[in-house]
Design a protein around this nucleic acid. Sequence first.
DNA 1: GAACTTATGTGACCTCTCCCACACTCTTAT
DNA 2: ATAAGAGTGTGGGAGAGGTCACATAAGTTC
Lengths: 224, 224
Amino acid sequence: MSKQAEFAVILKMNPMFADLGADELQRLSGLCHTQQLATGEVLFQKGDPGDALFGVRRGQIRIETGASDGSRLTLNFMGSGDLFGEVAVLDGQDRTADATAGEPSELFVLRRQDFLGFLEREPKVAVRLIELLCQRIRWQSERMEESVLQPLPVRLARRLCALAEDFGSEVHISQEQLGIFVGAARESVNRQLQTWRKDGIVDLQRGRIMLHNMTKLTAVARND
Amino acid sequence: MSKQAEFAVILKMNPMFADLGADELQRLSGLCHTQQLATGEVLFQKGDPGDALFGVRRGQIRIETGASDGSRLTLNFMGSGDLFGEVAVLDGQDRTADATAGEPSELFVLRRQDFLGFLEREPKVAVRLIELLCQRIRWQSERMEESVLQPLPVRLARRLCALAEDFGSEVHISQEQLGIFVGAARESVNRQLQTWRKDGIVDLQRGRIMLHNMTKLTAVARND
DNA sequence: GAACTTATGTGACCTCTCCCACACTCTTAT
DNA sequence: ATAAGAGTGTGGGAGAGGTCACATAAGTTC
């Protein structure tokens, strides 16, 4: 399968491009390039011009934002088949977050200029885009509420449930990263996980968390 | 001036519709209705279907979201001339937040069905919409970071500065509401305001906060 | 203006979480 | 094999901010 055809599949999997015809898809995916990243390598940083949209071919990209004192908040993990960078590429403004490779990664790159040209030729895509952006706003809105109003156990449980949806009952993440993810200290995360382990809700191994009792975990997440 | 012409002005003031021609604007504003709200009356609640976009003709609408335990987080105040509800009206999904009248208010209402019909006839508006949605995503992203990573004095200072931009140096808000606004207890807000009062940065009265030294306040907000 | 309601001011206490310190374990590099 | 470096487990102190309790003040209602 050619790179272009592979990118077309990724696009097709994304709701943003799901209703594109095969011919439209082919024309769009023909505009892409690819880029290699080593672990820890920076794809872009907050403030960089938003001149491209990315699709993950393989590897993992971390989207995160941080304060000057070094404390950071991980917004999302992007894995194989995920698309990101749509926001910046649409209005061309600066990136709102940083993106670094969590593993050796290969990305599809669709440059802003090429994408805008395509959009002008395909007005229907613009309409789908609007819906996608709305979804994102909703998602962010829920995230914000979650972070601000809820105590750590609830935030942690919700995050684990969300990760479970993407990766199954065995989540591959360090407690350090998980802490950054929910905006808490590593030690606090560990202590909470320990109490859950004693209750048989989770099991812990180096770099892995096994979720044994999703029922109880979702109960904590609901915070009734 | 007719109601429609008044609504047209509000639309024109909003970046979302700023580049519309006079004829387009007239056709769009002709689709609106009006609605009256008493103080405390609920316009919509989280979970209601998003079937309309609103413009404030007079009064004040509070956009807020809350947890089941009654703790609430005020997201925004909408005053005369402000537009809101764009997100829900675009994808028709449920409201992400509650909206209640903070004063006796009168609203312009543009129903989803009417708006979509207009959008289909005016593709250029859809493009502008995309940019507006991007801006909103950025704004939310900044809000989230602000809430999660910063200590209370910083959050409070930032909120007061933002309110000052809308309402001038005399902000009309109770400390209770302000606490909900920044996600803190009323008592904590009061204590912080007291220290600022001793420093001559603010002055306090029942239901009002006078901002005397915006320089120092913005310095706290920057958190250097 | 007297009773009542709402908003503000303040102290005491307590809990959560961060930060620091350090031990232990597993993996990788030399 | 040994060293170095991650990732993990735990204890303890400190501090921010929440909760509770109650006093005071400013509007409101009758």
